[in-house]
């Protein structure tokens, strides 16, 4: 009999994803679910879903889930974690949610060293509302609200949340990863696993920023979107570990 090397994660429900073809949300969902399986924490985990494309994440993760208002997932997660400090709590947020409307909440959750894990999906655009400019939209990138390309003088600069948060004392681990090819997917999983492990060990706030694609709103094909991410996003958002208390110790 052959050895089974891969299976559908137990921590995902049977529900089919609503995500567009070529969107990388599905990959990140699966990675998080695999880690929950591997760590055996499905029954002690509470996930917080954001407002954005992943608003329905509560349908996909097969653990207790709490849907948050736009940008406030870190505050909601704080409330849950303070009531159940022995449980695992993660937020799953997009760039509009985390880097625009929710900046205060993420900064202060990170600064408090709130013992939660944030999975931050950066695809440089608002997906759910139909392709508006995000705080992470690149210079010159066309969106419905930057139809002539993002003009830095008027719309400001792409915001680097990972770098910003990594200068705070509260976070235990902050890294930026990508999921545009299998090698990077493996690296992303490694970073996510470390974030969850550090939370389990009570080390404080952890966040993994995942560079992701949005072929639908970028207006290109799925394959091209993977190349676009690598060619245009990675220079602006370099992949690295920005904060790691284990390196300091």
């Amino acid at each position: 009999m052959m050895e089974k090397v891969a299976s559908y994660p137990d921590s995902l429900t049977e529900k089919k994803f609503h995500y567009c073809p070529g969107c990388t949300h599905g990959i990140v969902h699966r990675l998080v679910a695999e880690i929950m399986d591997e760590m055996g924490i499905k029954e002690e985990t509470i996930g917080v879903a954001p407002v954005g494309c992943s608003v329905l994440a509560y349908d996909y993760f097969d653990c207790d889930m709490h849907e948050a208002s736009h940008g406030r997932a870190p505050a909601v997660a704080t409330g849950i974690k303070r009531v159940h400090p022995d449980k695992m709590v993660f937020t799953y947020q997009g760039d509009g949610d985390l880097a625009s409307i929710g900046t205060a909440e993420i900064v202060h959750a990170a600064n408090r060293g709130e013992n939660i894990t944030t999975v931050f999906i950066n695809n440089a655009i608002y997906g759910m509302t139909g392709g508006q400019m995000a705080p992470t939209t690149l210079e010159g990138q066309k969106t419905t609200t930057s139809p002539y390309g993002r003009n830095l003088k008027e719309a400001g600069n792409p915001i680097r949340m990972t770098e910003m948060l990594s200068v705070l004392d509260g976070p235990a681990f902050i890294a930026r990863v990508s999921v545009h090819d299998p090698k990077h997917i493996r690296q992303a999983k490694k970073a996510l696993r470390k974030a969850f492990r550090l939370q389990k060990e009570g080390k404080g706030f952890t966040m993994i920023e995942v560079l992701s694609t949005c072929p639908t709103n970028w207006g290109i094909k799925p394959q091209e979107s993977l190349e676009w991410l690598e060619e245009y996003m990675m220079p602006v958002y370099p992949l690295d570990v920005y904060k790691d208390i284990e390196e300091v110790e």
């Binding site: 509470i46 917080v48 709490h66 909601v76 704080t78 409330g79 009531v83 909440e105």
Partner: peptide, 14 residues
Amino acid sequence: VAASNMVYGAAGAG
């Protein structure tokens, strides 16, 4: 805003 959402989380947590 954050406070009321923390309440939301804590209330949901029971």
